[in-house]
């Protein structure tokens, strides 16, 4: 038994030495892949969307080799702090709760509003039944607003709940809802006032990873300065989208 352990240790050691030489900086970009147009899996099965294009450009500017990985939304932060990937670039709004656990780069999308969508105009957004996705900032907002919160596991189900009458309205990011409303043929419409809940959207990094954060901050700043970030936002979110 002792011999077995020693051999195993020797193997591990030699493998470690062989790999220590080729210590390149591959940055693993974690995203959800289910939140168009921020990020989604395109029909070819690859990560696509605004954040794919943005992330690739940022990595180019920062001189990093990047690789894309998808992770379930619910465990996206635990897997970052556990080191399974190095950044979160998944349309994540900067909130104080999240900021306590991880660090954010500067915003790459200005604070985007959330909006209510319903079948008819006469919906009571503070007293009715409002659907939201579990564990989103919108779910927390609805719970505080006094409305009856109904939580679904996915964003798709929240829209379906409004369509079939389970909920009076859904509260979600306006950028996510806009194409759905536009293509519903007048069935769905925005109601009530838009609400701004979280801060802007930034990239999440581990608190101990200050070097990486600085690199991405610089890259985002350079994209802001030369106007390419605004162009990218307009390309994916339409001409009316808020820019810097």
């Amino acid at each position: 038994m002792k011999k077995l352990v020693l051999t195993a240790a020797a193997l591990v050691m030699s493998a470690g030495m062989a790999l220590a030489g080729s210590h390149a900086t591959t940055v693993r970009m974690g995203t959800e892949g289910a939140y168009p147009p921020y990020n989604f899996i395109n029909d070819a099965g690859e990560v696509d969307g605004f954040e794919r294009e943005l992330g690739d450009e940022l990595c180019k500017r920062a001189g990093l080799t990047c690789e894309w990985v998808t992770n379930d939304w619910d465990s996206i932060i635990p897997n970052l702090v556990s080191g399974n990937y190095d950044t979160i670039i998944a349309g994540m709004s900067i909130t104080p709760e999240r900021d306590e656990v991880i660090d954010f780069t500067q915003e790459y999308i200005p604070g985007s509003p959330s909006a209510y969508v319903a079948l008819s105009d006469d919906v009571d957004t503070t007293g009715g039944v409002i659907a939201a996705q579990t564990a989103t900032i919108q779910a927390g907002y609805v719970a505080d607003s006094g409305a009856t919160l109904v939580e679904f596991a996915t964003a798709d189900e929240t829209i379906a709940a409004v369509r079939n009458g389970e909920a009076d309205a859904v509260l979600a990011d306006k950028d996510f809802l806009a194409p759905i409303v536009a293509e519903s043929g007048g069935e769905l419409k925005f109601v009530g006032e838009d609400v701004v809940i979280g801060g802007g959207v930034g990239m999440g990094v581990r608190e101990s990873d200050t070097e990486l954060k600085a690199k991405f901050n610089a890259a985002i700043q350079s994209m802001k300065d030369d106007g390419s970030l605004n162009a990218l936002i307009k390309k994916w979110f339409g001409e009316d989208a808020q820019t810097f």
């Binding site: 619910d74 579990t134 009856t148 109904v150 939580e151 389970e166």
Partner: peptide, 14 residues
């Protein structure tokens, strides 16, 4: 769906 944040043990754990 969970109504008014009334759920089971796993709901609150998550």
């Amino acid at each position: 769906p969970a109504w008014r944040q009334k759920g089971d043990a796993l709901y609150y754990a998550s």
